[in-house]
Design a protein around this nucleic acid. Sequence first.
DNA 1: TATTGTTATACTCTATAACTATA
DNA 2: TATAGTTATAGAGTATAACAATA
Lengths: 145, 145
Amino acid sequence: MPRRVEGLHEALAADAWGRIWEFFLANRHRYASLAAAHGLNPGVMAALLSLDADEPKPMRWVAEACHCDASNATWLVDRLEERGLVERRTPPEDRRIKTVALTPAGSALVGAIRAEVLQPPDAIVALSDDELDVLRTVFAKLAPE
Amino acid sequence: MPRRVEGLHEALAADAWGRIWEFFLANRHRYASLAAAHGLNPGVMAALLSLDADEPKPMRWVAEACHCDASNATWLVDRLEERGLVERRTPPEDRRIKTVALTPAGSALVGAIRAEVLQPPDAIVALSDDELDVLRTVFAKLAPE
DNA sequence: TATTGTTATACTCTATAACTATA
DNA sequence: TATAGTTATAGAGTATAACAATA
């Protein structure tokens, strides 16, 4: 059986993926800029965006969401609490746990950041409906990974 | 003149862009993992990938490429030089400048990292040629921004 | 005097280990 | 004893400011 030559489809996939990576690399610093614009650092903003007003999350949730350890999660939430963006609570059913929930100020800031993020760049708006639909479908498939 | 209600196209653009962001956020830590797999930190890898074997770049180029200041660029290039991945040179025409170029070992590592990065995830390979072509076109348009 | 890069130093962010409180 | 979170501390990474060398 002859060795399989790389197919056209694989080459196309590699090319497309390469361009996505280039975009990713070129825009890596944007996340930090967005955070800085709101007086946050990237880690603190990640913690903020992982939280919710209605469903308080335990500290370990924050650590997982931020890919950091427990002591750093404490530090991140301290920063958010200092600014009145989140509130720690102790659920009576297990007093070892502390949960964290967004305050109204925190929700407002999350809303503002989300709105800012969702403002697509001109190059995206300039695309056709068909192209946008492909993007939406493709990235919906990629999301859970 | 009635206030313009947000059109369907804009909503579609925002939706697509939102999903791209989600993907971006969910994969932020992958860059750090890739660097760590090669014994680098994210900043040092960014410096490495900004360099070239044939076109030596001045230190200030590294600083700009890495969105950092000059003293940090010195530190990043020191780390690369320690590992024999880059080489500093002083061009005779202006002895204030130091240029940095990849060594053969540096080029090899950049090649390995690039090859690894270009390996598309299964979800990408599973897309149709048409979908891949849209991705390629769209991200080519987004790149220069 | 202006520019390029480095050194000395301090600050920010993150992790490791020891500790407290609760189960 | 095991688990959730915090505190004390050290380490990595980044920036500011002073400096040396060259133009």
